[in-house]
């Protein structure tokens, strides 16, 4: 089974749309992508217990890479690790990658059957194509 992915965001709509975008890169391929986003009332917020449940649901034994937006999403993702059983926790990677770019890199790699360290590395490299492309263009200031 491929590595599973979890998307953590303050916004359910943002997370769902990011997953739709990523799945668009995976025609005909299976991939477990779970979402833990929004607060208990459907507003903006994050919930470590929901993240822990999403990780458990996404894990088929080969581990999970968690992508997240920022701020309390990071703190909640780390807190979720404390709520997981030791054996599951060892199979989870919290990715510092940017959410959208990282998720797409991770989804394509995971669906191709890569191990979670490779999936996490590809997520982290998610910004590289855009940076390479735009930094090669005409100078727009900065240094």
């Amino acid at each position: 089974m491929p590595v599973g992915l979890v998307v953590v965001s303050h916004s359910r709509a943002l997370a769902d749309a990011a997953v739709v975008l990523a799945r668009g890169m995976l025609p005909g391929r299976e991939l477990a992508v779970e979402v833990a986003a929004g607060d208990v009332d459907g507003g903006l917020g994050t919930d470590a217990t929901a993240i822990a449940e999403a990780v458990t649901a996404a894990d088929s034994g080969d581990g999970v890479v968690v992508l997240m937006d920022l701020g309390s999403a990071v703190l909640s993702a780390e807190t979720a690790l404390e709520l997981l059983d030791d054996d599951v926790r060892e199979r989870v990677v919290l990715s510092p990658a940017p959410l959208v770019e990282g998720l797409i890199g991770a989804a394509v790699t995971a669906a191709a059957g890569a191990a979670r360290t490779q999936v996490a590395a590809e997520a982290l490299r998610g910004l590289a194509p855009k940076q390479a492309h735009l930094s090669g263009g005409p100078a727009v200031g900065g240094g």
Binding site: D39, V40, G43, L44, G45, T46, D47, A48, T49, A50, G71, S72, L75, S76, E78, T79, E82, L83
Partner: peptide
């Protein structure tokens, strides 16, 4: 701890949650 983690939503959820945990 688990109630705060589940219901606060913002950064104070995981922070106070971790305090009590």
């Amino acid at each position: 701890a688990t109630t705060l983690i589940r219901t606060v939503g913002g950064a104070s959820g995981p922070l106070y949650g971790t305090f009590f945990l």
